[in-house]
Write a protein that binds this DNA or RNA. Structure first.
Lengths: 122, 122
DNA sequence: TCGTAAGTAGTAATAATTACTGTTATCAAT
DNA sequence: ATTGATAACAGTAATTATTACTACTTACGA
């Protein structure tokens, strides 16, 4: 993988963001420093960065893909009301499904749905 | 919510299917008994059934929404190789995030990624 | 410095989902 | 049972996130 300032800027933004941005959000953000960057470039590089393991994706109920730069193990709290995703850095223990199913677990994603503090208080 | 044979057929199919069908798969299946059903009808009813809590959705890495009729608590095993989703009916204990974040958990979804038995053996 | 191939901008195409429109079916009240 | 309101429908058009394509540009090893 060669170096490109576009990919550097994209990785940088996703790594620093805590809001699990979509491709479009990354595009808007990176455009501030590279005004003529192409949306296609953003999509291509995000996919590449996921492939190479630099970032991961978060599947949510909206039909856009969200990206995440923090690879430390954590869970997601998804508020049904405001749709915000909150990170909680904690480990969850992986069950033994191998002995019964033969499935070899490599990674996991846990999402809890509910109402966040702010939305409960209003 | 009024009764309609289209919605009955859709709910019936999703409830009985174990393959986490997409809207299009539901459409194709229901078309066998109601040949002139509209794809829009399938989408509308699936959304309605989710809203009413009769079925749920499974977010996967492909960009289609998958539906699920089995509401018993279980986890999903997603094979990176064949993309199959396997259900494992087991409880996972919910961590206490309320005391630190004020987030009230209502439901959860846990997905494990890896390689299934069949794909490992080939 | 030069050749090659990875990367890019800009635009066109794709595919899942949603919106719209005129018609039909459900069902509560007469 | 008939009727009237409106939820639901089929069929189709529109939208939107994402992917593919093309001609040009840049990174980098020889």
């Amino acid at each position: 993988m060669r170096k490109s300032k576009q990919r550097d800027a994209i990785l940088d933004y996703v790594k620093c963001s805590t809001e699990h941005p979509t491709a479009d959000m990354v595009y808007e953000a990176v455009k501030l420093s590279i005004p003529n960057i192409s949306l296609g470039t953003v999509y291509r590089n995000l996919a590449q960065l996921v492939d190479e393991g630099f970032i991961t994706v978060v599947e949510t109920s909206d039909k856009k893909v969200h990206y995440e730069g923090n690879l430390t193990e954590h869970i997601h709290l998804l508020c049904k009301s405001c749709c915000n995703i909150t990170d909680v850095f904690m480990k969850t223990d992986v069950p033994d499904v191998f002995s019964s199913t033969g499935f070899k677990i490599e990674s996991q994603k846990t999402v809890y749905y509910g109402i966040c503090k702010e939305c409960r208080n209003t």
